[in-house]
Every structure is written in structure tokens, then in C-alpha cells.
Amino acid sequence: MIWQFDVILLTLVLVCAVISLSIRDLMASAIVFGAYSFLMCLVWTGMGAVDVAFTEAAVGAGVSTVFFVATIYRTTRQSNYKRKDLFIRSFSAVVVSVVALALFAVIADFPYWGDPFSPVNDYVGSYYITHTMAHSNVPNVVTSVLADYRGFDTMFETCVVFVACIGIYAILRRRKKQAKAEDTAVKHVAHDSLIIRVASQIMVPFMQLFALYVVAHGHHSPGGGFQGGVVLGASVILLALAFNVKTTLKYLSEKSMIAYSAIGVLIFAGTGLLCMFLGGNFLDYSVLSQILPYTDEVMARSHAMLIVEIGVALTVMSAMYGIYLSLATDGHFDQGL
């Protein structure tokens, strides 16, 4: 890609990172972090990694900023700075500069940026690129590496998302109502707006349709399980923001949120166990051609990747929705942002 754009964007990214950590107002810090995320998404698009940029735009710049704003809404908006914090700031600056000097001494030995004969491009990358169509008939190398060649990592990543959702829910969920009125950082004004409600009602079905398209088309275009799951979760969060939390809980209740996140992990690990029962290794999809009708070994891998991506999308959607509900309603699950 055009290297001048990349250099300017990388410098802007550094500036945004420093500013985001040094602003004293926490809400402004979260918004600048959203801008930092968008700039990183542009950097990765410039380097050709569209899948990662898609995920970062949806997760980092979209949902993650919503999570930060929800937390800041429920706690406080200011961060205190006292004189005695200066000691630990300068001490950690010294430690970090020592580590940075050690790392700078190492990067002189790396292959230069854009080297087509570096070990990463030569051995591992070219093997995956040349063999992906022959092994599983999936043109998108990112999806085939994610779900087939490195399926174990994706399975454990899905488990991590599930554990995060369950952990936040378990810590924050409260059952009895507080007697006194809580004071929040921002004054809570509950008012209803017709424009926002109607516009969200128009957008949410299209968002969900697009998310299903992204999950199903992940074999041929940038997409896959994580991206589709995040867009699905964002559509439910949009519904919760435009209406109130009680209405959204009627559509997708708390029990079904927990159930869907567990079912997603079950689909993924269950496919692996099914392959083991049929005689192959764990997550060795080619033995599934015995039970799927009219498929040979290559197409069995392609179909099993789609099943696994559906499991990932289900878990990610429920996790996004569950974390948003736990954070925004402060555990009470009755009234949100």
C-alpha cells in the first residue's frame, strides 16, 4: 500500500494513545480511545488485513467504547491526581525505558518491513496460502487458518469469551433492590424520543441480516464468526439503547443469554468430540464426511468450518449482550442507560 499514508497513520496512532492516557476526564479518555481504535483499523486495512480491521472496528471502536461509557456512567467521571503519584509515574517510566532500550537493540536484527523472503512469509504463510484450496476448498485464507488449521486456538478463544461473560455476570448481578436512591455520575433523565425509536426499528433487522450474511459468507469474503457475532450483539445493544432494558429483556431474556453463550461453546467443542467419536483426531473435520450426506473429505471440512463459525457467532453475540446488560444496569437488570 501507499507507504506515506501508513507512516502518517502510525504517527497519529502514537499521538492518540498518549492523549488518551493523559486526559483527566474519563469520558473524554474513552472517546479518544474510540478514535485510537478507528485509526488502528485504518492502519490494518492499509496493510491488507481486512478481517482484523473489521473486528477491530466493530469491537474496539464500537462495543468497547459503549462498555467504557456504561461503566463511567455508573461510577465516577473524574480521576484524581495527587503529588505523590509523581514518584510511581517516574519510576515506572524508568523501568519502561529500560525495557524499550532492550527491545530497540533487538529490532535491528528483524527483517525489514515488507520483506517477501522473511521466515514468516516463506515457510508458514506460503504453506497455508498454497494448500488452502486443496485441503478444504475455502478461498479466504484467514477463515481457513482460524477455523481449520488453528482450530484449537479459536476454540479456547471462544471459551475465554464465554468465561468473561459469565464472570462479569456473576460478579455484578444483584437480586434485592436497594432501599435508597443511588447517585450516579450523570443525572439520569428518562425521556422517550420518537425519532430514535423509529430509526432503530428500521436499522436493527438490516443489521441482523447483514450479520448473518457475514457469518455465512466468511469462506469467500472477509468475515466469519467473530465479526458476525459482534454485529449481532451490537444490534441487540442498539435495541437496548433506543428502547429501555425491560423491552429488550422481553425479546431476549437473561436466561436465554446465558443459555446461548453456553450452546455456542457446546457446538464448537461438540463438533470436535463428534470427530473423535467417528475415528479421527479432535477437531479433524475430514472424518465428518461419513455422516454428512453427499460430501467428500474436502467439502466436509468446509461445512464443518461453517458449523463451528455459527457456534462462535452465537457465543460472541450473547457475551456482548450479557456484558452490556451487567454493566449498564449495574446488576439490577431493570433500567439501563
Binding site: 501508513d6 507512516v7 502510525l10 504517527t11 496512532v13 502514537l14 494513545a17 498518549v18 492516557l21 480521576s79 484524581n80 503519584d85 510511581i88 509515574r89 515506572s92 517510566a93 523501568v95 519502561v96 525505558s97 525495557v99 524499550a100 527491545l103 530497540f104 529490532i107 535491528a108 528483524f110 525489514y112 518491513w113
Partner: peptide, 23 residues
């Protein structure tokens, strides 16, 4: 020639400093 690695080290060090120093 290795500008991207320089930026990577700087971003990682900014993140590490933030995790250690900020309360």
C-alpha cells in the same frame, strides 16, 4: 526501514507504562 517495529515497541511501551503508573 524498520519503522513499523519502532512504532510497535513505542505503542507497547505506552501501554505498559499506563498499566504500571496510572491509578
Amino acid at each position: 526501514a524498520n519503522y513499523n517495529y519502532v512504532v510497535v515497541v513505542l505503542i507497547m511501551m505506552i501501554g505498559l507504562w499506563g498499566m504500571l503508573a496510572l491509578k
